[in-house]
Design a protein around this nucleic acid. Structure first.
Length: 190
DNA sequence: AACCATTGCAACCGCAACATC
DNA sequence: AGATGTTGCGGTTGCAATGGT
């Protein structure tokens, strides 16, 4: 049991994955009262979570306008462009991709794009003289001056790393499960 | 069928900025 | 003006799912 028991009312704080029940409580509460001060919200809703955790859950997962499913090639391109411009300003980048969260974009970048860039870098280094390529390498840092048309990005353009084939299935799964949650919230909320 | 390695994602943590008292 | 609380952000971790041997 990972609970933090302080002297008084500071009872157990739940951590780890959210249950469907907790999701419903949060959805219901926000539907009825709106978003407010998250710490207060967590307490008032009867959730044994920190305000921080509630906020994160809501923003990244429960919000009705959150879009799930595979990143489209267009979105991927946009992410790469904006990352080249702003670096790891994930929330800023996310604002330009409606329905996407900073966390999702960050994960996507780290798990897919960054890996591909590394592979491309290795490939580049193997095929070109290192001195020729000094300065064009992405790993020189995502500074503001990095252009989106650098060799790395060109390589990514021609080699889409996202297979769009499974997008539909995962998206439909998402909309189904979220529909369940939201419909059950509509039943219980008035 | 069982085991191990890899991948992808949800969630946590720490910090800085901002707001309020 | 300083203290305290809250929010937002970016980095990191843990773990379930998946694939390979």
């Amino acid at each position: 049991m990972d609970k933090k028991t302080c002297n008084s009312q500071e009872v157990d704080v739940r951590k780890g994955p959210w249950t469907t029940e907790e999701d419903l409580i949060l959805i219901n509460y926000i539907a009825n009262h709106g978003e407010g001060v998250w710490n207060t919200l967590a307490r008032s809703a009867g959730l044994k979570r920190t305000g921080k955790s509630c906020r994160l859950r809501w923003l990244n997962y429960l919000r009705p306008d959150v879009r799930r499913g595979n990143i489209t090639p267009e979105e991927q391109l946009l992410i790469m462009e904006l990352h080249a411009r702003w670096g790891n300003r994930w929330s800023k980048i996310a604002r330009h991709l409606p329905g996407r969260t900073d966390n999702e974009i960050k994960n996507y970048w780290r798990t897919r794009i960054q890996k591909k860039i590394k592979q491309a870098e290795t490939f580049t280094n193997q095929n070109f003289d290192a001195t020729q390529n000094a300065g064009t390498s992405y790993s020189s840092g995502p500074s503001d001056g990095v252009q989106p048309c650098s060799p790395m990005y060109m390589n990514n353009n021609t080699d889409p790393m996202v297979t769009p084939m499974s997008a539909e299935s995962s998206e439909s799964f998402w909309s189904m499960s979220m529909e369940d949650l939201w419909s059950s919230h509509l039943f219980s909320a008035d």
